[in-house]
Design a protein around this nucleic acid. Sequence first.
RNA 1: GCGCUGCUAGCUCAAUGGUAGAGCAUCUGACUCUUAAUCAGGUGGUUGAAGGUUCGAGUCCUUCGCGGCGCACCA
Length: 486
Amino acid sequence: MEKLRATRIEKGEALRAAGANPYPYRFEVTHSVAAVREQEKALAEAGAHVRVAGRVMALRGHGKTAFGHIEDSSGRIQFYVKRDDVGDDVFRRFELVDLGDIAGIVGTVFRTRTDELTIKVESLELLSKSIRPLPEKWHGLTDKEIRYRQRYVDLAVNPEVREVFVKRSRLVETVRRFLLARGFLEVETPVLQPLYGGASARPFTTHHNALDMTLYLRIANELYLKRLLVGGFERVFEFSKDFRNEGIDRSHNPEFTMMECYAAYLDYMDYMDMMEAMVAEVARELTPNGQATFDGRTMDFTKPWKRLRFFDALREKTGVEFFGVAEKELAAHAKRLGVHVEKGAPASVIIDEVFSALVEPGLQEPTFIYDYPKELSPLAKDHRSVPGLVERFEGYIGGFEVCNAFSELNDPLEQRRRFEQQMENRARGDEEAQVLDEDFLRALEYGMPPAAGLGVGIDRLTMVFTDNHSIRDVILFPHMRPEDGR
RNA sequence: GCGCUGCUAGCUCAAUGGUAGAGCAUCUGACUCUUAAUCAGGUGGUUGAAGGUUCGAGUCCUUCGCGGCGCACCA
């Protein structure tokens, strides 16, 4: 390794000695690789000069001539250097170029005998000397640990990885455009919060020195967006990096991206339609026909999602009724179904466990589950006709949750009772019970319009549209333990 | 946290407990339409770390570190 580096550093020095800066400031690019391909005919006929810059990804020397490939973000193209064309000086400098260097080439386009579009180099400039060798050209970089830790290398040599993140960006852009077109206002709310709320999770804790106070990284931005509804913004949304101090696995990263949006005067059924339309638009943008293949299963997002009531889904899957059943009987159900539940767990927890274990994994096709038990949803409004339920839905794709929405609870007195119940749960040891937020209650007391809200897991939605099965593959720099000792 | 599994050259991978190897990359030489270029020759290793067993350890055992997969916790 040290030898490989030293050789490359020496080549950089040799270039410097020949009067060329191995790290110059600027290069005038006239064409991307894609543009050269698109405009080939006109460029060839005119004998026009193109100036292309990128990373040298292949080199094949033949003595007084050489072929290579240069790659920019739009693609890869062959170039051809011939000593008789470029002259001794340029050719000698070219010989100091290594695989992985960033270079700028100037030349004309032509087709080789094998009919490959090629740039005939007239001059060439090293734009950045690479002093670390890239992974091998054929197998590339496959070691997941290195791919995640050194994503820059992964991206540099694996174009399909770049494509994943291009898609992610287009997905975000599509969602943003969708919301803006419907009159939503994009806002920014605090990441550092004196109280954390809006979801059930343990937070990351930090400290503000000047104010000498504890602050939390947000686990959600829900309560702030609702305050904005009180303030008179009728439709708001935010792409929010949220932080949850919990385990890491295929579908959980400690920091992740959620899009939350709230609209006054709508209810959860309106939002179900909207979610469907939003994902359909994403599918149109990212796929040729509105269909995505995830884990070998083709999903057609031009069609409506399946819709199932929470307790209907449970009953269908287990053959047992869970609604309106006493705790003791629920525990017996769970045991019989082979779902492990802590002794003395409350009804809501038992139901949630059974649902997670038996129903969720089967929700492969895009499905909305709706009308949740009240105890699981302290921020959702009571169901308008069925006591014990709230107006809430979650969207599932590929067996995991991709969104969560409800008709928002806007009765300040009821919200206070729900918070108090949560605080009781907390006192009994539920570390994830939500914290009572007096300022949020004060806001509700001023009057929040009836509204519905939706949170969409952007990482997970990206997984669906890129057919990746680990959240690490859709996060550029996923969380890793430090690589000490290596 | 538990179970399984992996960690060998820059990368991708070999190596019954018995001399650490190959391909690519790299270096030297040849080569003016190649494309996983070709041909000839060379360099490159604290086998993740530390202990142990053994005449002898990449290989077996223990502990630790960092991944992957599954489970649990968790949404």
